[in-house]
Design a protein around this nucleic acid. Sequence first.
DNA 1: ATGGCGTGGTAGCCACGA
Length: 257
Amino acid sequence: MKLATWNVNSLTVRIGQVEEWIKKNQPDLLLIQETKQDNTKFPHETISALGYKSIHNGQKTYNGVAIISKYELYDVQNNIPQFEDEQKRFIAATINTEHGKIRVVCVYVPNGQSVDSEKYHYKLNWLNYFIQWLKNEMKMYPDIIIAGDFNIAPQDIDCHDPEAWKHSILVSQKEREAFQKILDLKLLDSFRKINPNEIQYSWWDYRMGGFRRNLGMRIDHILMNKKLADMAKLCVIDKEPRKYERPSDHAPVMVEM
DNA sequence: ATGGCGTGGTAGCCACGA
C-alpha cells in the first residue's frame, strides 16, 4: 500500500496538479486538506476517471478535507463527534486492504494564527477533543492511520530556525505537548520512525523565497499504530510539486508499506 | 523570516494561512 497526505491550498486551483501527481505516483490512498470548496464543487468525476473513490467534507473559502482511495470507503465520519464546529477539518473512513481493515483519518488541524490569538485557543481545544475522540476510536479500530496537516513541527529538527520560532505557533510548547499526547496513544510518526535524523520539511512560506532558501517546517504527518508502522518501509516528502508553476505551499508526504 | 505570497471572497488599503 502506498499512501500520502497533501495540503493542496485550494483544490479548485490545484486539481490539475493533483491529477498529475496521482498519475505519476499511483498512491492507493491520498488524503488532502484545504480544498476550500463546498461539497457540490468537489471533482468526484475527475477522481473517479483515475480509478478512485472519493469523499469530501468541505466548505466555501476555508478548510475542507477529502479522502481519495482505491479501496471502498465506508463508515464515513465528518467532523469530530461531540465537538461543535462550523469548520470542516476532519473526515474519517474505514478501508479493507491487503493489510486488513484500517481506519483512516484525514485532519486539517487549525493553524492558530499567533499564540495570543483566540484561534490559538481554538487550536488547542480542537486538539483536545481530537485526542479524546482518538483514544476511544483506537479501542474499536486498533489499526489506524491519522494523516494530514497538523500545523505542528514536533521537534527542533523539524523547523529551520527553532530558536526564532520557539514561542510561535507551529512550534510552541503547548502545541508540541498536544502532539506528544497523540503519540502517547501508541502512535508513531512514520517519517521520523523511518528517518530518525533526516532534516526535511513539508511546508515553505510563499514569501521571502522560503522554498528556494529551504526555510521550511515539517508540519504534515502520517501517524499510525505500531503494527502498521512496523510494516512501513519508506516515508518520503516529495518536493517536486513545490517546484510546479503556481504550487501549493505544502509538499506531499508519502508512505509505502 | 513576518511587508515582501497566494487564495478566495467581495468591493473593505479584507480574512486567512503558516
